[in-house]
Write a protein that binds this DNA or RNA. Structure first.
Lengths: 199, 199
DNA sequence: CCTATTTTCTAGACACCGCCTAGATTGAGC
DNA sequence: GCTCAATCTAGGCGGTGTCTAGAAAATAGG
């Protein structure tokens, strides 16, 4: 058996992995640099070489979270199907992610609140532009402002539903039904508007 | 000048007051029992007579938060005006509260997530039944399920908008516009697109 | 190949925190 | 007035994040 080498080699990745797991089952409060170091089998000061701060570790986690969410949304968007079907998939993917990784989601959003510009903004931007493109395909005719409003309203509603489910206020199945209802009213009103104006 | 009395007298209230302020400007992480004790001019162990836990203090804060939100919603609901006007006021009051006391709001909802039954549930229930009554007055005609869906969708959307604003992703003014748009689409689709066609 | 430099990790220290305990002080009820 | 429960003090324990000095290993340059 090999002696534990002085250099771990890929501590950073291991720490992030471990942190992701801890985050899932213990929340942000259960995350401690010292504990992560212990799990990785290094001294308590080792993580400092990769993350100056505890916040720095949290930021990195948030960034990875945005990447993952972006991928999820993109694949949900990519498949074939009706327009509302694709939107429904996106919505569900979004909500699912927010529920399964509630603590991560929290991190991702409060990260922007603290306002540190950085790679997080970039990752978040990627997600938003993805969403933007999808919505742009929908209402090529609508004016820019109403498109923006629709986009934000979409995001807000998904976020809200996810929050309700994640906080245990409503069941997951109900959450799905809510997603459907939301899509219906939003798309319905939007499409209705178009029909009215075009007639 | 009077000597500092051994018995503070109303430590509990002072601690809660101080905690509310700290919560507003430093978030949950900035809340420490020892710091609160220092601010109140008592020893670091004193708060323990009133709050066994740190969590216990947080729970008390959440409960007060629900009370305040309920009052805000109730007064917004009480005034005169059009049906959609009153709804708009409620929505705005809800969002305003969630923005001004974002950390408190977070506490209130994660408190339910941890699932401890107690007075928080009670306070939260009061808020919800208030909202319920208001929504019940609206759609006396709709079936129960659609009413429930509408209620939850309403709450979710408000929550989501508040989260977007609180996280600094969108401006407050945009948040207000979002609230209007949300009310429009939701009431519109529910009431037969009256609002939509009028825009 | 050998040396200089940079990165990575160890180890110890400091201040802070939540929580626990023993004991002093006070106010209230008998 | 005396007892008793509530309140507050003071000290200690283990845990944490952060800082520092220095050892160890990878990397680069001659």
């Amino acid at each position: 058996m090999t002696q534990k080498p002085f250099h771990h080699g890929n501590l950073r990745a291991v720490l992030l992995d471990e942190a992701t797991m801890v985050l899932r089952e213990s929340g942000v409060d259960g995350l401690s640099l010292r504990d992560l170091a212990r799990r990785a089998g290094v001294s308590h000061g080792a993580p400092r070489s990769h993350f100056v701060d505890r916040q720095s570790l949290l930021d990195a986690l948030a960034e990875l979270g945005f990447d993952r969410l972006t991928v999820a949304v993109r694949t949900a968007l990519g498949g074939a199907g009706d327009l509302s079907a694709r939107f429904g998939r996106v919505a569900r993917a979004y909500v699912d992610f927010a529920i399964d990784d509630a603590a991560l989601m929290e991190l991702m959003f409060q990260a922007k609140a603290t306002g540190r510009p950085g790679r997080i903004e970039e990752a978040a931007g990627a997600l938003f532009s993805t969403l933007d493109g999808a919505l742009g395909a929908r209402s090529a005719e609508g004016d820019d402002e109403s498109r923006d409003v629709f986009k934000m309203l979409f995001a807000a509603t998904m976020q809200g539903i996810a929050a309700l489910v994640a906080s245990g206020r409503i069941e997951r199945a109900q959450g799905d039904r809510l997603v459907d209802a939301a899509m219906e009213t939003m798309l319905g009103s939007a499409l209705g508007m178009r029909a009215v104006t075009s007639s």
